[in-house]
């Protein structure tokens, strides 16, 4: 093995790393925004309101992210309607296609995390809100959502790490993220092991940073109580 190629191409790996970070940050923020209404609709007592998010979540959690990316990137562009629409300037860019696929995917998982958290709040707190005469909106805004946020943190941190790992799939649609950059470098140097190991080390480093940040935030957010834990399904 010859690790001098790693040194030589390190700046390009860093360029790729920055693209990966952008992909993850954007998808997580957008996915989080989408996830909230989906989660709220999912726990609605009305059947037709909760069946749509159910189908949505089922589809995005039941199929591989790779298939979803290809569907958005190659599948959608096959149709003239899409190519002539106002959305084409966005859908034409692989970066935004990846953001769309990642956002849809992570919002399905995040919605389940939110739902779990809202349902994990002891019923007594809901009753207490009603007793003091809060409206439904007030109850959600002042009590349920802030409480859910605290409960959600560990699972949410986990979801970000899974998104980071999933972002490697962006390389399959010409994006030069960390994995894409690694594959492009290998196309020149033919040293797959060295370059992939270097890329792996960078991914590990980023996930460690994410874990450390979440430990700090959790400590801060949940400092007033003991441990509350919820069960959230894993993702792939």
């Amino acid at each position: 093995m010859d690790f001098s190629v790693v040194v030589e191409y390190f700046p390009r790996l860093l360029e790729g790393t920055w693209v990966s970070i952008q992909l993850v940050l954007l998808s997580i923020v957008l996915g989080g925004l989408f996830a909230l209404p989906i989660a709220l609709a999912r726990i609605s007592p009305v059947l037709w309101i909760r069946s749509l998010p159910f189908a949505y979540i089922f589809f995005f959690r039941g199929t591989p992210l790779l298939v979803q990316i290809f569907l958005v990137y190659y599948g959608a562009s096959q149709f003239d309607v899409v190519r002539e629409s106002v959305l084409w300037p966005i859908l034409r860019e692989p970066f935004w296609c990846a953001i769309i696929a990642f956002t849809l995917n992570t919002s399905a998982y995040t919605a389940e995390i939110f739902r779990g958290a809202i349902q994990a709040i002891p019923p007594g707190e809901v009753e207490a809100c009603k007793v003091v005469g809060m409206s439904k909106t007030q109850m959600y805004r002042r009590v349920l959502l802030p409480r859910a946020f605290g409960i959600v943190l560990p699972a949410y941190g986990n979801e970000i790490i899974l998104m980071l790992k999933g972002s490697a799939l962006a390389s399959t649609i010409t994006i030069l993220d960390l994995t894409g950059m690694a594959r492009t470098i290998i196309a020149r140097t033919y040293t797959p092991i060295e370059i992939f190991l270097a890329a792996g080390a960078i991914y590990l480093l980023i996930s460690m940073v994410i874990i450390a940040i979440f430990r700090q935030v959790e400590k801060h957010q949940n400092r007033y109580l003991g441990s509350v834990s919820i069960k959230v399904p894993d993702k792939g």
Partner: peptide
């Protein structure tokens, strides 16, 4: 410059206008 895993995907993106 955009580089693809295989030539078929290059054609797909040429046809789609990317």
């Amino acid at each position: 410059l955009k580089f693809y895993d295989n030539q078929d995907n290059v054609y797909l993106d040429l046809v789609s206008g990317r």
